[in-house]
């Protein structure tokens, strides 16, 4: 079968060259490959899912895919045992660019208020998920402590709070992990990511599942899915209509993942809301 590539992350060639990767998880539209239970490359058919180390295929689904391993060749070829090779043409590649820097507070304040008003309007969306309710309550408690630690610049204490929500909650990527991803995106956008938080990568490897760990590992490096990047681009542009579209796109990610990431983004941006510099 001739497999067409829609787009892919260029970092695959700088970081995964000449490696054999094995199938770790398989879903209808996504297959994760890696080694030693660590996800290093994702094949997906979801056109909106551009993210670190991801190849997006122009296919309906991946149910036909039977291979249990792949090899990344240096001639831009991904080789499988039973499938045709995939050629990653240079013009189809793109980079996971760093989160745009938000220098001014004006649209940040507006964005946060926009989201908070939407969240208030949608407050009953947890339905009857007991684990979701318990975990969100716990995340709120821990993040109150995080905020206090952040204000006191006590990064040990702040890191400890993040550790306490790793792997917490429902979903394949638990609520706490998605929240952290969103929070880290905001910290990068404000150029305020503490190097100290990089320790969370090792902790996450133990405390959460491989799918979620891969997301946090990349977030620590400042590499995020395009859907997250787009949120910050629209904040920078300050266009409400675009913001609403991108918010809805992100919210549609997974079951609650998008909403939880958004929660983390808003929490993170709120850390910098003290002194809005309107128009400056």
């Amino acid at each position: 079968m001739n497999i067409k590539v829609f787009t892919y992350d260029e970092a695959i060639f700088s970081d995964l060259m000449e490696q054999q990767l094995f199938c770790l998880q398989r879903f209808n539209h996504t297959i994760n490959f890696g080694v030693n239970n660590e996800i290093l490359l994702t094949l997906t058919t979801n056109k909106n899912a551009f993210a670190p180390y991801t190849i997006i295929l122009d296919q309906n689904n991946l149910s036909y895919f039977s291979d249990t391993s792949l090899f990344v060749h240096k001639d831009r070829r991904i080789a499988f045992e039973n499938q045709d090779n995939i050629y990653l043409e240079k013009e189809r590649g793109q980079h996971c660019y760093p989160i745009v820097h938000l220098e001014k507070n004006e649209s940040v304040v507006f964005f946060v208020e926009l989201i908070e008003s939407k969240i208030t309007a949608e407050k009953n969306d947890t339905g009857c998920q007991p684990l979701e309710i318990y975990s969100k309550q716990r995340i709120k408690e821990k993040m109150n402590c995080f905020k206090q630690a952040w204000e006191k610049e006590d990064m040990d204490m702040a890191l400890e709070q993040l550790t306490q929500i790793l792997g917490l909650g429902v979903g394949l990527t638990p609520t706490g992990d998605d929240f952290i991803t969103g929070l880290f995106a905001s910290l990068y956008a404000k150029s305020a990511f503490p190097a100290h938080f990089s320790q969370l990568a090792c902790i996450a490897k133990e405390k959460t599942n491989p799918v979620s760990y891969a997301e946090i590992r990349e977030a620590i490096k400042g590499r995020f899915a395009q859907l997250i990047q787009n949120i910050f681009i629209t904040i920078l542009r300050g266009n409400v209509h675009e913001m609403l579209i991108e918010i809805e796109q992100l919210k549609a990610l997974g079951s609650t993942s998008g909403k939880d990431i958004l929660w983390g983004i808003v929490f993170g941006l709120n850390l910098f809301r003290k002194e809005p510099d309107y128009g400056n």
Binding site: P130, L131, S135, G167, L168, L172, P174, T208, N209, S212
Partner: peptide, 10 residues
């Protein structure tokens, strides 16, 4: 019914 991944926190 509590359904989730088997992480320490859960």
């Amino acid at each position: 019914a509590m359904i989730g991944m088997g992480t320490d926190m859960n």
